[in-house]
Write a protein that binds this DNA or RNA. Structure first.
Length: 622
RNA sequence: GGUCGCAUAGCUCAGCUGGAUAGAGCAUCUGCCUUCUAAGCAGACGGUCGGAGGUUCGAAUCCUCCUGCGAUCACCA
């Protein structure tokens, strides 16, 4: 039982004893730094139930707590705030408990029910850009956070591999490509295909301009440009299964996938299962038919099928065209149901999609609910704000995008410049250095994006490079590296009570976290009768460590990696302050020295765990 | 026009279910490297929390209205 729960019970008891009143709840908050104490009991809310002077009530509760609860070593009352001082022994005990917990902060038992997290889901006609990066980082991180909170998670994406957009690239390639391939040009496949998408747009605009110059109405010109008509024709051929078109489609999508794989790999994201729109775009029609029977949908005279959501404050929405073909909504209904069929343990889904589709998902979830699917109540749209440039929106066709690969390379290069200037990497091979630069550059980028509340839009200025100082990924990575440096030295000089086992630097977080865990045998020392007094900075650190598990849960509930990022920053700030103020290895008292080394080690583990949830790696040195 | 979201220091952002004097980073200025990594620490400067009402013992937080910005409202995806 944690202190807060104990205190809550005891506060109620105190009120019952003194006033014969049963309090429904007790409110707490961390004590502000400028007052003495660790946890503050709010007296004000009790005044609704207990008549009296808040200071006196606080005083009475305080006295009761001090007498009844071992962990309470003191208190003070200021206005309606009862500041409770928690004993060093309690914090030492707590730290002893978590010290050997390898997955500290992560839910120990996995729930049986699974949740599917969809993210990325790009079109296959152009390379990934900064907007996709935000999507990928959010989706990946939320999936990891959900896992840590005890959920079983499937990561997926639905790849938009068919439609007019890819036909445009295909047509332009046929027309202007001269048989170019990624191999012949040395270009990444997605880049090559993207170039033809741009080429299409250029040719299209020329044709439109020509028509307008010839006196044709602009709106008609836009619809009747020959190259557009050809693209539409190509799409029809594709749907009809035309061999030549399908073969080209497969080839060009194949190029794109190879390119995407490189980008995903560099970005460090992955998927457990993939869905392709070419497989799912016909799904959902039968469900619409069933819905018609049930009266959820209705058919208009022209044959199109609709749902009336005006009762819910929304509009009418089409779910099937008059010619019987599926719209986006039809597919999404079908795909959702298909996923449940494929993975029967799924009890909920998270869709990582930009906030421009808020309305779409509101409608989708409502339709699924009306169709009577029990899991519809566990559908979440992880809606995030757009990433805009100072010049405005990013537009692939106009070439105003920040390319994902370019951006990652730029970040790595900047990290390399800074690292080389600082010159702390003596003894590292060139490969090790490159890996480290990438780790730092990506750490900066990922943290920069993930620390912001998902629902807020991000203004990204490519001119002002992402910071490497202050509240940044590299700052946190640096602190981790510092801690590892201390731990290496601690082993060298042989700190008493510290196991000399070295941490394995495996690739997986799980391996490393458990690899880092300390052997037992040192625990009893901490709470011996003559326990050392805690330095205020040590106490603050333990308090911050204590918050990690609840932060993970909160982040999972809110689907917000930003909460993890901000927590980690606070922890690291606290550690650096501690590091600055007290000497760890220079401490004369062996017990204190051991405690500090162990604290540093635990902070390092939590940094690594937390950053793992953000998809950010941490270095041994930097 | 209807609906949804956002608005906090010069800039970028925190602020948990309402609680004490609204916090960080960047930028500007001051100190601190012969002691565990200065990508650091300590400090200064900087705010009518978009505006106006309301609820409450108490509002950046909840409600209403207004302003500004963004998104969305297609037999597009």
């Amino acid at each position: 039982m944690n202190v807060q729960t104990t205190l809550s019970i005891k506060v109620k008891e105190a009120i019952l004893n003194h006033f014969s009143v049963e309090l429904p709840t007790v409110e707490f908050q961390p004590t502000r730094k400028d007052f003495e104490g660790d946890i503050t009991v709010m007296v004000f809310p009790m005044l609704r139930f207990v008549k009296g002077n808040p200071v006196q009530i606080g005083q009475q509760i305080g006295e009761f707590l001090q007498k009844e609860v071992d962990a309470v070593s003191g208190f003070n009352v200021i206005q309606g705030f009862l500041n409770v001082v928690i004993s060093d022994a309690y914090y030492l005990n707590f730290f002893k408990d978590i010290e050997n917990t390898p997955y500290y902060g992560f839910a120990s038992e996995q729930q049986k029910d699974a949740i599917m997290v969809e993210y990325s889901s790009p079109n296959t006609n152009k390379p990934l850009h900064l907007g996709h990066i935000r999507n990928n980082l959010l989706g990946y991180s939320v999936a990891e956070i959900l896992k840590a909170s005890g959920k079983k998670v499937y990561k997926t994406q639905i790849i938009n591999d068919r439609g007019i957009h890819i036909c445009k690239s295909m047509l332009a390639w046929q027309r202007f490509g001269n048989g170019e391939t990624p191999e012949s040009t040395g270009l990444k496949g997605d880049k090559l295909v993207g170039n033809y998408y741009v080429a299409f747009d250029k040719a299209y605009k020329q044709q439109v301009a020509q028509k307008i110059a010839g006196g044709i109405d602009p709106k008609v010109a836009e619809k009747e440009a020959p190259i557009l008509l050809e693209a539409q024709e190509m799409l029809q051929k594709w749907e009809a299964g035309d061999k030549e078109v399908v073969a080209l489609w497969k080839t060009m999508n194949g190029w794109v996938y190879k390119g995407f794989d490189v980008t995903y790999n560099n970005l460090g994201v992955d998927f457990d299962t993939l869905y392709y729109e070419s497989d799912t775009y016909l799904l959902g029609k039968d469900v619409v038919e069933e819905g018609l029977q049930k009266g959820v949908f209705y058919r208009k005279d022209d044959g199109s099928v609709w749902i009336d959501l005006t009762d819910e404050g929304l509009d009418e929405k089409i779910v099937l065209r008059s010619d019987g073909t599926a719209v986006y909504m039809t597919q999404d209904i079908g795909t959702a149901i298909q996923r449940i069929k494929d993975y029967p343990d799924i009890e909920g889904m998270v869709y990582t999609v930009g906030n421009e589709q808020d309305y779409h998902f509101k409608v989708l979830f409502l339709i699924l609910k009306k169709l009577g699917f029990s899991w519809s109540k566990n559908l979440h749209h992880l809606s995030y704000g757009m990433v805009d440039l100072p010049s405005g929106k990013m537009k692939s066709r106009e070439g105003t995008v920040v390319d994902a690969d370019d951006l990652m390379n730029d970040m790595t290069r900047t990290a390399a410049e800074i690292s080389e200037e600082l010159g702390k990497l003596e003894g590292y091979t060139e490969n090790e250095k490159q890996d480290l630069y990438k780790m730092i550059g990506l750490g900066a980028l990922k943290y920069y994006i993930l620390k912001v509340d998902p629902k807020k839009r991000i203004l990204f200025n490519p001119e002002e490079s992402v910071d490497f100082q202050g509240n940044t990924g590299p700052f946190i990575q640096y602190t981790y590296a510092r801690i590892q440096s201390i731990l290496r030295k601690a082993e060298e000089i042989g700190v008493k009570g510290l196991e000399t086992r070295t941490a394995q630097s495996g690739k997986h977080l799980e391996d490393e976290v458990s690899g880092l865990s300390m052997d037992s045998g040192s625990d009893t020392i901490l709470v011996a009768d003559n326990s050392p007094d805690l330095h205020p900075k040590e106490k603050e650190l333990i308090k911050q460590l204590q918050l990690f598990p609840e932060t993970v849960q909160l982040a999972a509930e809110n689907l917000s990696p930003a909460l993890i990022a901000n927590y980690t920053y606070d922890l690291v700030k606290e550690f650096n302050s501690f590091y600055q103020q007290v000497s760890i290895l220079g401490e004369q008292d062996e017990l204190k020295k051991l405690l500090r080394v162990q604290l540093a080690k635990k902070v390092g583990q939590v940094i690594k765990s937390a950053f793992g949830l953000l998809g950010i790696e941490v270095p041994e040195r930097m």
